[in-house]
Amino acid sequence: KMMALDEGARETAARLVGLLCAVGHNAILSDDVLIDIWEKVAFNAALNTTTAITGLTVGGVGSLSESRQLL
Rank of each mutant, 00 (worst) to 15 (best):
T50Y: 09
A52L: 13
A13K: 05
H25M: 08
S30A: 10
T54I: 03
L71T: 05
D36S: 00
T57I: 06
E7H: 10
E66H: 03
L20E: 07
T57F: 05
Q69W: 02
C21K: 15
D31R: 03
A9G: 11
A46H: 08
L5H: 11
L16W: 06
G8S: 14
D31P: 03
D6Y: 09
L71P: 01
K1A: 15
A42R: 06
L64H: 09
V17F: 00
E39Y: 09
T12Q: 13
A22I: 00
L70T: 08
L56P: 02
F43K: 08
R68W: 04
V41T: 07
I37Q: 12
G8V: 08
K1T: 13
L64R: 12
T57C: 05
L64C: 06
R68V: 11
S30V: 01
E11F: 08
G8H: 13
C21M: 14
S65A: 13
L47S: 00
L70P: 00
N44P: 03
S67K: 03
A45H: 13
L56M: 13
A13Q: 05
D31E: 11
A4M: 02
L34G: 10
A14P: 00
M2Q: 05
L29V: 05
A9M: 15
D36Y: 02
N48E: 11
A9E: 15
N44M: 11
V23I: 09
E11D: 15
H25S: 06
R68H: 02
L20T: 02
D31I: 01
G59A: 11
T51A: 08
I37D: 09
N26P: 08
L47D: 03
A45V: 14
T12D: 12
L16D: 07
A27L: 00
I35K: 11
E7R: 12
S63V: 03
G59T: 07
G18V: 08
C21G: 12
G24L: 02
A45L: 15
I53T: 14
A14E: 14
I37A: 12
A27N: 01
D32R: 08
G59P: 01
M3P: 02
A52R: 14
T51I: 05
K40N: 13
A4R: 01
E11I: 08
L70Q: 09
D6L: 07
S63L: 11
V58E: 10
L34A: 14
M2V: 13
N48D: 13
T50W: 10
N44Y: 13
E11T: 14
K1M: 14
G18K: 06
A9Y: 10
I37K: 11
L56D: 05
R10F: 02
M3Y: 07
W38R: 14
G24F: 01
K40V: 10
D36V: 02
I37P: 03
R68P: 00
E11N: 10
S67M: 15
M3L: 09
